Lab assay of single mutants.
Amino acid sequence: LHIEINVNGLRIELHNVSEELAERIREILEKVDDREEARRLAEELIK
């Protein structure tokens, strides 16, 4: 499954994740104000 999410102008592509996991990642990242911090957090979440 390939999912693309957009959060605060940051486009993140997720591969091989469930829709539920992608939604949780999006919800978490929406709470982060700083774009660079959101990017770093996204990288950690999808490892």
Rank of each mutant, 00 (worst) to 15 (best):
R40S: 07
E4Y: 06
E30R: 12
E37L: 12
S18A: 06
K47A: 14
I5G: 02
L21K: 02
A42L: 15
R11W: 12
K31V: 09
A22I: 14
I28A: 11
L45V: 09
V17C: 03
E43G: 05
V7M: 07
L14A: 06
R39H: 06
I5A: 01
L45D: 00
L1E: 08
A22E: 03
R24Y: 11
D34H: 04
E37V: 09
N16V: 06
I46E: 02
K47L: 14
E36C: 04
I28H: 03
L10S: 06
R39N: 05
I12A: 01
A38F: 11
I25Q: 00
D33N: 14
N8E: 06
I5P: 01
V7G: 04
I28M: 11
G9F: 01
R11T: 15
V17P: 05
I28V: 09
L1G: 12
N8K: 05
R40G: 03
V32P: 02
L1V: 12
R35N: 11
L41M: 12
V7W: 09
I3S: 04
E13D: 08
V7E: 04
D34T: 05
D33F: 13
N16D: 10
L29H: 01
R11C: 02
I5F: 05
K31E: 11
R26F: 06
E19P: 14
N6R: 05
E30C: 07
E27Q: 12
E36F: 07
E37W: 10
K47I: 14
E20N: 06
I25G: 00
N6M: 10
E23V: 12
S18D: 08
N16M: 07
N6F: 06
E13W: 15
N6T: 11
L21M: 13
L14N: 00
I3R: 03
L41R: 07
L45A: 10
R40W: 06
R39G: 04
L14W: 06
V7L: 08
E30V: 11
L45C: 04
N6I: 14
H15I: 12
N8C: 10
I25R: 00
E37H: 08
K31N: 14
I25H: 00
D33G: 13
I46H: 02
R40I: 08
R26G: 02
E23L: 13
A42N: 00
A22T: 04
L45N: 01
E30H: 10
A42P: 00
N16I: 05
E44T: 07
L21W: 09
E4T: 15
R11I: 15
I46W: 08
I5C: 03
E27Y: 12
V7F: 10
D34K: 03
E37N: 05
R24V: 08
A22R: 04
L29Q: 01
H2W: 09
L29K: 00
E43K: 05
L14V: 07
A42S: 05
I5T: 01
E44D: 11
A42M: 15
L10V: 15
L45S: 02
E13N: 09
V32A: 09
N16H: 08
V17E: 02
E13H: 10
I25C: 01
I5Q: 01
H2I: 15
V7Q: 06
E27G: 08
L41N: 02
A22P: 00
D34V: 04
E30G: 09
I46C: 07
E19L: 15
R39V: 13
V7K: 03
L41F: 05
G9A: 01
R39I: 15
E4W: 08
R26P: 00
I46L: 14
N8M: 02
V32F: 11
I25W: 05
N16S: 06
R26C: 01
E37Y: 10
R39F: 13
A22Y: 12
L41Y: 05
E44V: 08
I12W: 12
I3N: 04
E27P: 01
A22C: 03
N6E: 15
H15S: 08
E13F: 14
E19W: 15
E20K: 08
V17I: 13
V32W: 08
L1S: 12
E13P: 07
A38W: 10
G9V: 01
L14I: 07
E43I: 13
V32M: 10
V17T: 06
E30T: 12
V7R: 02
H15L: 08
E20P: 04
N16G: 14
R35E: 13
G9E: 03
D34W: 04
E43S: 06
H2K: 09
E37D: 07
L29F: 13
N8I: 03
V32E: 06
R35C: 05
K47C: 03
D34F: 04
E36Y: 08
L10A: 04
R35L: 15
H2D: 10
G9P: 01
R11G: 05
E43M: 14
A38T: 04
L41I: 13
H2C: 11
A38P: 00
E27L: 15
R35Q: 14
L14Y: 06
I3A: 05
R24D: 02
I3T: 06
E43C: 13
R35F: 12
E37A: 09
L1D: 09
D33L: 15
V17A: 11
E44M: 10
L10K: 04
E20W: 13
N8S: 06
I3H: 09
E4S: 14
E4V: 15
E20V: 09
L21N: 03
N8R: 06
L41P: 00
E36V: 09
E19T: 12
I3M: 10
L1P: 10
L29R: 00
L29E: 00
R24C: 04
L14Q: 00
E23T: 12
H2V: 15
V32Y: 12
E27C: 08
A22W: 11
R40V: 06
R26V: 07
L45M: 11
E43T: 09
E4P: 02
H15F: 12
H2P: 07
N6V: 14
E13I: 14
I12K: 00
D33I: 15
I28K: 04
E36N: 10
E19V: 14
E30A: 10
E4G: 03
S18R: 04
L41H: 03
K31A: 13
D33M: 15
L14K: 00
G9K: 01
K47Y: 11
E43W: 14
L45Y: 08
A22L: 11
S18E: 04
E37I: 09
R35W: 12
E4C: 10
V17M: 09
K47P: 03
R26K: 13
L1K: 12
I28C: 02
E36L: 08
E23H: 12
I3Q: 05
I12L: 12
R24K: 13
E43V: 10
E36T: 08
R24M: 12
V7A: 06
E30W: 12
K31T: 15
E20C: 03
I25Y: 02
L21P: 00
K47V: 12
N16A: 07
H2L: 11
E43H: 10
E43R: 07
L14P: 00
G9I: 01
V7Y: 05
R35A: 14
R40H: 07
R24G: 04
E20I: 07
E13L: 13
E23I: 13
E4L: 14
R24I: 08
R24E: 05
K31R: 14
R40F: 05
D34E: 04
S18C: 02
R11F: 13
L21G: 02
A22S: 05
H15M: 08
L21C: 03
V17D: 02
H15R: 05
R11H: 15
E4F: 09
L1N: 13
D34Y: 03
A42V: 15
G9S: 02
E30P: 00
I3G: 03
E37Q: 11
L21I: 13
L10M: 13
I3D: 02
N16W: 07
N8W: 01
R39W: 15
L41Q: 09
E27M: 13
R40N: 09
I5Y: 03
N6G: 04
S18N: 08
R39T: 08
E13R: 12
L10G: 03
I5D: 01
S18M: 03
L21S: 04
N16Y: 07
A42Q: 01
H2R: 09
G9H: 02
I12M: 08
E23P: 02
E23G: 10
I12V: 10
I12S: 00
G9W: 02
S18P: 10
I12H: 01
H2Q: 07
D33Q: 15
E43N: 09
L10W: 12
E19Y: 14
L1W: 07
R35H: 15
V32Q: 07
I12T: 02
L45P: 00
I46F: 06
I3V: 11
I3F: 12
E27R: 13
K31W: 07
E19M: 15
I5N: 01
E43D: 12
E13K: 10
I28E: 04
I46K: 02
L29T: 01
L1F: 09
D33C: 03
S18H: 06
E44G: 05
L1M: 14
K31Q: 13
R26Q: 06
R26D: 00
L1Q: 11
I12Y: 10
V32H: 10
E37C: 07
V7S: 06
I12Q: 01
L10Q: 10
S18T: 15
A42E: 01
N16C: 06
L29A: 03
I12N: 00
L14E: 00
V17Y: 07
H2N: 10
L1C: 05
L29C: 00
R40D: 03
E19G: 09
R35Y: 15
E13T: 14
D34I: 04
E20A: 13
I28S: 04
D34N: 11
S18W: 04
E44K: 06
E19C: 08
R39S: 07
L29N: 01
E4R: 03
L41V: 07
A38Y: 08
L21E: 07
E30S: 13
D34M: 03
R24Q: 12
H15C: 10
R40E: 04
R11D: 04
I3K: 04
I12R: 00
E19H: 15
L14R: 00
E44P: 01
E23A: 15
D33A: 13
H2F: 06
